[in-house]
Design a binder for these strands. Structure first.
Length: 744
DNA sequence: CGACCAGGAAACGGC
DNA sequence: TTCCTGGTCG
């Protein structure tokens, strides 16, 4: 009896025992991939006599990593607390956290999520007087993210910039990077790029990790980007004991920088042993037939054909209605009928776009069906949570401009955009932190007397909290913070959702407590960084609730399975999405997305579509999805077809035969560009002077600052001191912040 | 100068 | 339907 090798099929076992050298596991949907990875991990430990920490196993989601750890612990009977089973991001964070000085960062740097990054870009664009009605922050940020995914530096981007928008993006990119460094912040891409830099610049560190991680495994390899490929290359360069697991048919994150080519490139570069896993343990043969027909149209894919021992199977139910509301209603009715035999938790409804969820949600409510929406707004993306996190960030790093801009007028302190910009200019010219600038608001012209008092109070509070950072527990710290700025009153009165928002803040405090107890968030910085990387934080608390139907986007459904699946909105313009229409690559990705949706179903699949959809309040006629044509009509069950042409009488017998679907001129939404005008914004430029006298320290002294590191005193005056920091250049500092300077 | 309101644009997917 | 921007009032 061997728990590691028994019960695997031949191919799975082959993948598990192929220990040395390069291996590519082509894991079809539902082929027992997770089992292969975890068993392989356990096998390596046993057969190669390795310790947990000798294998680096990276995935894309915390959920997947958690699942793997749990199964590995069960298989090996060992604790996984020292394992390197992590997401790419968490792995990168760990490397940076251990060596922040190699990139000139203090130990308590912070992580910015995509939203924060977008705020930075917006603020940068304002500084550069870029008209944001012409050049939207979103697309600019998107380009910057893609550039970073592909390891294109601002300089390279600038060189290649041919169009006006690219030139503008190049300037924003350059400034964006600078701003992140000034804020001691890292964006998600940096969590990969910085370790690569660290490894390249510090060969001994790289060697250390190469020795430590003697084997590497990467899950969902089709979702990796160029930076991640580089990271892999560096880490495994010596022994090339690398096993990648992926499925090019499930590559659906191209828009996020994933490079489907990586999987083909790996095959060329590493000449791996290729192990295809084609036996599916999830779905009926009928569902697989439908899936295969959808995906086998894609040229250049790695040929594989899923099969299962579960021959036959229920046909696909097809729901066609005239209106979106009817579509949702029929779905709800069908679910209610099903619920006599199948638990609600066995049923999932998928949609392409989040905006489709509303109508579905209403139908569920009306039909009294318990449901739960996965994804949607994440816990840490909520305003109230971001506010508190921004406060914490500003306390940790009083130079964090993004955090400052966010909270300086929350709660209202009579400072608007103009006052904000003035304070920022003032701080910059005086070379002081934003927190210190608060205490000097009186010296900034045009700020109301009442505001000056409030800002000064805030500055004092933030300074004191900064001082107590190391002295009190994270939980108490956050409690005191919330209390000191009167956040409870502010958020309670925010609007009618105030009470709920306050509950979220309380929930935040609870999670600080939890992380504190578990040791994961032993410092406040650990805590906020961990929250930023943990998108699924709100999933945790609702786990053991009653049985509910699961509603989610198809992207969210990847990696999951349900006995009964509804794919809603199988319409042209939704899937494939209208934005993908003009790009063959994107159309292929849409096709794969549809494939992913189909392959989530174990026993029964439904597809639904509507003859019209409401877009911005207008009823727009829509055609069925072209993908429906690729599924043989005999796989559909005509009995369950609700005619879109007659909602009263059953259309039994018509089925797909009547399907008239011409994938030509469908044009659900207008695509014209609006006419734009350019308006530059006028910025204020004021001069600041910084001279005075200072007691203990004199020019030439070496000092250390908790955030800025070591530096040399350049000039000393009454209230200000100019210090040339080794990593951060010349800064003028004054007042309270000098007390955190240490002579060295 | 900031708060508030009205009108216009707007939403693909997310670690 | 919501979200953001620009204009006006206090």
């Amino acid at each position: 009896m061997d728990p590691i090798l028994d019960g695997l099929n031949d191919k799975q076992r082959e993948a598990v025992v192929a220990a040395d050298g390069s291996v590519l596991v082509l894991a079809g949907a539902g082929s027992g991939k997770t089992r292969v990875i975890t068993n392989r991990f356990a096998y390596l430990i046993r057969e190669k006599n390795l310790k947990m920490e000798n294998i680096l196993a990276v995935t894309f989601t915390n959920k997947a990593a958690g699942e793997m750890k749990e199964r590995i612990a069960r298989l090996t009977g060992e604790s996984t607390s020292h394992s390197w089973v992590r997401t790419f991001h968490a792995t990168g964070l760990m490397i940076i956290r251990r060596n922040p000085e190699t990139i000139g960062y203090p130990h308590n740097f912070v992580i910015y999520d995509a939203d924060d990054s977008k705020d930075v870009a917006g603020s940068v664009m304002q500084d550069l007087h870029i008209n944001t009605t012409v050049y939207k922050t979103g697309p600019v940020m998107h380009s910057i993210f893609r550039a970073k995914d592909n390891m294109i530096t601002p300089a390279e981007f600038e060189n290649d910039a041919a169009t006006e928008i690219d030139k503008i993006t190049a300037s924003v990119y350059r400034e964006y990077e600078k701003r992140l460094r000034e804020n001691f912040a890292l964006d998600f891409n940096d969590l990969l790029l910085m370790p690569i830099r660290i490894f390249r610049e510090n060969p001994r560190l790289l060697e250390y990790y190469q020795n430590l991680w003697r084997y590497m495994m990467i899950d969902e390899f089709q979702d990796t980007n160029i930076a991640q490929y580089q990271f892999m290359k560096l880490v495994v360069s010596r022994d090339k004991h690398i096993c990648v697991v992926g499925d090019d048919d499930q590559s659906i994150y191209g828009w996020r920088g994933a490079n489907i080519e990586n999987i083909y490139k790996f095959k060329r570069d590493y000449e791996p042993t290729v192990v295809p896993l084609e036996q599916n343990y999830r779905s009926t043969q009928l569902i697989l037939d439908a899936a295969n027909n959808v995906v086998n149209k894609i040229p250049g894919r790695m040929e594989k054909r899923l099969w299962t021992a579960r021959s036959g199977g229920d046909k696909i139910g097809l729901i066609e209605t005239m209106r979106e509301t009817d579509e949702s209603r029929v779905i709800a009715d069908t679910i209610r009928d099903l619920s006599a035999k199948v638990g609600y938790d066995k049923i999932a409804v998928f949609y392409r776009t989040n905006s489709q969820s509303r109508v579905l949600e209403e139908a569920m409510l009306r039909a009294n069906i318990p449901y739960r929406i996965f994804g949607g707004q994440k816990f840490y993306e909520r305003k109230e949570i971001k506010d508190v996190i921004a406060y914490i960030r500003l306390i940790i790093n009083p130079f964090d401009r993004q955090a400052f801009e966010r909270i300086v007028n929350i709660p209202a302190r009579g400072v608007g955009n103009v006052g904000k910009q003035k304070l920022i200019s003032y701080a910059k010219e005086m070379g002081i932190s934003y927190v210190e600038a608060l205490t000097k608001a009186g010296e900034v012209s045009g700020i109301q007397r009442e505001s000056v008092r409030k800002l000064d109070d805030l500055g004092q509070v933030l300074f004191e909290l900064n001082q107590s950072l190391e002295q009190i527990s994270p939980t108490n710290f956050v409690k005191i913070l919330i209390d000191s700025v009167d956040y409870k009153k502010y958020i309670r009165d925010f609007d009618e959702t105030g009470a709920e928002r306050w509950e979220n803040v309380e929930e935040l405090v609870n999670s600080v407590k939890e992380l504190e107890v578990s040791g994961e968030g032993s410092t406040v910085v650990d805590f906020i960084n961990s929250i930023t990387l943990h998108a699924e934080i709100d999933d945790l608390k609702e786990e053991n609730e009653r049985e509910t139907v699961s509603l989610m986007t198809i992207h969210n459904a990847k990696g999951l399975e349900f006995p009964v699946v509804f794919i809603s909105g199988v319409n042209d313009g939704l899937i494939p999405h209208s934005n993908s229409r003009h790009s063959p690559e994107q159309m292929e990705e849409e096709r794969r997305l549809f494939y992913v949706a189909v392959t989530r179903a174990k026993d029964k699949l439904y597809m639904s579509l509507s003859g019209s959809r409401i877009v911005y309040g207008e009823i727009i006629p829509t055609k069925p999805s072209v993908f429906l044509l690729d599924i043989p009509s005999e796989l559909f069950d005509p009995i369950q077809t609700h005619s879109m042409y007659d909602t009263r009488t059953s259309s039994a017998g018509k089925g797909m035969g009547k399907f008239t679907n011409r994938p030509a001129a469908a044009k659900p939404g207008p695509a014209e560009e609006p006419a734009y005008t350019y308006e530059g914004k006028i910025g204020s430029a004021e001069k600041g002077e910084s001279v005075g006298g200072m007691d203990e320290l004199k020019s030439g002294d070496r000092v250390r600052h908790p955030m800025l590191g070591a530096g040399t005193v350049k000039s000393v005056s009454a209230k200000l001191m100019q210090i040339e920091f080794d990593n951060w250049g010349l800064r003028a500092m004054g007042g309270n912040f000098l007390s955190s300077l240490r002579k060295i």
